[in-house]
Design a binder for these strands. Structure first.
Length: 199
DNA sequence: ACCGAGATGATCT
DNA sequence: GATCATCTCGGTG
């Protein structure tokens, strides 16, 4: 079969991502801070994530596979998108090797397509465009249509990057396993959904 | 700054 | 009928 890669860097990036996602979601969530995520060229640097594991009572996968969370039990590196509170969408990256693990993308530092994001969100300040899982899905126009799509192929693009420092703390908006420190963020970022405790 | 409430629909008991 | 991996707005200090 003839290769049709337009860029020699794409196979390298795909291989690096495949290796990254084959780990415990807490490691993946930490490692993803500083990477850049875009959809059709609109997006920014990942500055906040949360990990969910199939043995974690707060995870959608805790009680087994259902139609909603089916993608969580499939191959790593795909998008798991679900509706939150009947209004918003939330984006996860499926992890392996254990089935039923994922990392919730909670906030981006907007870098690409600012004007498009402003129109979609109806707000102007960069700080308010992607500072939450529902906000960033609105800004990037992520919906159920993206559920199950691989993140290393269009319309998604995931580019490796680094963070100056990483902070961790308890996850937000859950009622079970509230003490697990599986929320990760870039230290000092002004684009978080909320500050981290004591730091 | 902090707090409460409403929006709105899929999922689960 | 209750529970959400949320956001926005309006009230109060």
């Amino acid at each position: 079969m003839v290769s049709s890669y337009a860029s020699s860097s794409r196979p390298e990036a795909a291989a690096r991502q495949a290796a990254l996602f084959q780990r415990h979601p807490a490691k993946v969530g930490r490692a993803l801070i500083g990477w850049t995520l875009t959809v059709d060229g609109v997006g920014g640097r990942i500055v906040e994530t949360e990990a969910y594991h199939h043995e974690d009572p707060a995870s959608h996968s805790f009680s087994g596979a259902t139609p909603r969370n089916a993608v969580m039990f499939g191959p790593p590196g795909r998008a798991y998108v679900y509706r939150s509170y009947g209004i918003h969408w939330c984006l996860n990256v499926v992890c392996g090797p254990d089935p039923g693990s994922a990392v919730l993308i909670r906030a981006l530092e907007p870098t690409d397509g600012l004007e498009t994001m402003r129109e979609r969100r109806g707000v102007a300040e960069p700080r308010n465009l992607c500072s939450g899982p529902g906000k960033l899905c609105q800004a990037l126009a992520i919906t159920r249509a993206h559920d199950g799509l691989p993140l290393d192929a269009p319309p998604f693009e995931l580019v490796p990057g680094d963070a100056a420092g990483i902070v961790a703390g308890p996850r937000i908006g859950i009622s079970r396993a509230v003490d697990l420190p599986w929320r990760f963020g870039e230290a000092g970022s002004r684009f978080l959904s909320r500050p981290f405790p004591r730091g």
